[in-house]
Write a protein that binds this DNA or RNA. Structure first.
Lengths: 241, 241
DNA sequence: GTGTATCGCTGGTCATGACCAGATGCGAGG
DNA sequence: CCTCGCATCTGGTCATGACCAGCGATACAC
């Protein structure tokens, strides 16, 4: 079988190219439990050394997509389905809970994002993004403040759209950019004076703070920080052993 | 400076030995932001090849303990404890982060659990459980308070074991009860006076509160409520689209 | 038939060595 | 004085090649 994608020298590291190929293979052509070609076979197939193959596979293993079994092979991992903890927009989330979501647009600007965000958007170049701050409201009660940067390279003209509607939906429909996965951390902090004012809380009341990096394919499309009222919002999740 | 620990051939892989050394170094001798010896220097110091050094550092980077900066060096990451979202005991969690976990047993009793817990343990009968309250400490710093009920029908004599060690491990090893999955909700609240006192915080400081129901097979084996210091603990998770 | 030895797979570990690319300081040339 | 470029640090990438260790099937001896 001829590989549709050839691995070439260039600015993109080979293990990164191979990782993309393997991700496609594992998610589109294979099913959980299926075995991948052996590392040595992948070397021959793609003309790279084993160290490169192991680098690519290693990253996918640490993400949980693949599982290595010594002496047997490398397999596609189980696609654990998380019921409530998922990549959903605030709008969908609230509707599922029977609440009417609305959004107040606080500010929009196109600018160069802060260093950490820029690094995520364009590791090897200059990044530009849309900085969008929004207040999320459910049934008239302020629930959360979003402070998000979106990668302008992936969604040019995002600021022309109606930003009080679902940005996730806009990214999918207008720019063909599906949201594939996200990494997020959750902590508890006291609301700053500004956040507290927006949420209608006394200052320093506990809020859940999310720091989320969202991927579309291999690219980071969103880096957002959100503050959710601790008295009105809980995160529910399933854990597997 | 002579290294107190020498890396030797043996059953333990060299990169694992080095990882232990580097974890010690980063957590005990260095502070967040400090630079580690360069990779090539570590090769000379410990008599291993660079591939081994990179393997060891790579794992610690993926755990968040270290941060690599191209052209500058490798640095100790910020100290916020960051936990991967999975079904792991506090002990394992902390050890993986290079912290020494200890546990203070606050109270143990065998009793009839409150209604909601009893309903989970035995939907159609009388439930009995062990009520165990513990203070979880990492490197001498109180991190969390656990208030947990364990199903006595599934783990008789649990109160006879050393409850300052991992209860998850005890359930698996002594009672053959693996933990299969859990449902948990996470919120942010202000610490009650009692919780704050145990955690060494001023009252009403933000804490992450977990309400977790853990299953062994189809049975509920644990119903726990935990309070984690918001300033010392973050939860990290992946979301799939 | 049954156990066992062996062979040919798999991933796991590690050395050597090369070159690329980002960061940074210093000195030469403007 | 300022600027540019180079030397020299750093981590990033990759090839080659070797041997170890777990797994499983096959072949062989009992």
């Amino acid at each position: 079988m001829a590989q549709p994608v050839r691995i070439v020298d260039g600015v993109v590291p080979k293990h990164e190219q191979l990782r993309t190929i393997l991700t496609e293979l594992a998610t589109r052509e294979l099913s959980p439990g299926d075995m991948l070609p052996s590392e040595r076979q992948l070397c021959l197939d793609h003309g790279v050394s084993r160290i490169t193959v192991r680098e690519a596979i290693g990253q996918l293993v640490s993400e949980g997509l693949l599982v290595r079994v010594r002496g047997k092979g490398t397999f596609v991992g189980e696609r654990t389905v998380r019921s409530r903890l998922h990549l959903a927009s605030f709008q969908e989330d609230m509707r599922r809970l029977g609440l009417e979501p609305t959004t107040v647009l606080l500010s929009v600007e196109r600018a160069e994002p802060p260093a950490r965000t820029a690094e995520l958007f364009a590791p090897r170049g200059r990044a530009e993004g849309f900085h969008i701050r929004r207040l999320r409201v459910a049934d008239g009660i302020p629930i959360a403040v979003d402070d998000a940067w979106y990668n302008a390279a992936l969604a040019p003209g995002l600021d022309q759209l109606d930003l009080t509607r679902s940005i996730y939906r806009a990214l999918t429909e207008h720019f063909g950019r599906g949201l594939d996965r996200a990494e997020q951390t959750v902590g508890a902090i006291g609301a700053s004076r500004e956040i507290a004012a927006l949420l209608g809380l006394p200052a320093s009341r506990p809020v859940l703070v999310f720091d989320r990096v969202t991927y579309s394919g291999d690219s980071v499309i969103e880096h957002a920080r959100s503050w959710y009222r601790g008295d009105r919002y809980e995160l529910q999740m399933s854990l597997d052993g």
